[in-house]
Amino acid sequence: MRPGSRCILSVGRFSEAGKVANRSRRKFLRTFGFALAGLAGLPVLPGASPSALPAAASGNAAQNTAVPGGHAGGLKAGRWGMVIFTRKIAGVSERHKIIQACHEAHNVPDIPGRHAIKWIRNEGFARSFAVRQAPEELLNRRFLLLCNHCSNPPCVRVCPTRAGFKREDGLVLVDYGLCIGCRLCMSACPYGALSFNFCDPAPYLREIVPDFPVRERGVVEKCNFCVERLDAGLQPHCVEASGEAVIAGDLSDPESRVSRALKDNYGIRRNDPHGLEPNVHYIL
């Protein structure tokens, strides 16, 4: 210690330092112990937040918070799903037509390079299904990848603002007005179905469709299963553009077209080791 100076850390001590400090320390520890015990007991109180946590951990949080959906005159389903007959769209032009129909109708910008936005994209078998060994023909085939509208969507669970939400009919959607651009949903989605608007998308739009909103810079977007068309009683754009190669319908109805297609054909889904239950099926 320097001469003429005094330790500043002793400030706050009282003159009867020994006794008072000891007594107050004991009192402090006692109060602190009670407070900790009280805080530890909080979770057992009714209405305490942890009631939401087990649901989240089991992957059912999204179902618990599902919002009603569908319009009176629209198409209805218990659980929307899609079946893609991959042989029927083996050609580049067929796939391109589907992608273009979707992107043009939804004002998806054509941004080159790293900032690209994709609602539907093309990938090979190995990248699509995380399987490296398959017949040569299958390995060379390209597959259309889009949001799987999972039954237990992790993107909905991690979204801090509920911008990502799941409707009662199983559609997983993004509210662009609520999205804060934290990109946690992109981290959570194992299928890479979400894109982020790194820049203003408007300059990259060839033609703006006035019926659909143009997104802003800094928000996340993805395939919405053409919810606006379903609510108007129409089939999604990709279904219409594909001829019969892509069909959409109610997976919860065993008599629906999609359920029968899955019954009659060998269908696979994208890799699902975590029980997300994707609802897009591929007929090989």
């Binding site: 939401a52 669970r157 979204c159 603002t161 911008a163 999205c179 934290c182 982020f196 800094g218 928000v219």
Partner: peptide
Amino acid sequence: NLGRPERFFYIFRSHNFSSLR
């Protein structure tokens, strides 16, 4: 770190209890 930093307080306004963030 947010794409829309001006919406930071949406985290509390429109909260999601299952989100770690």
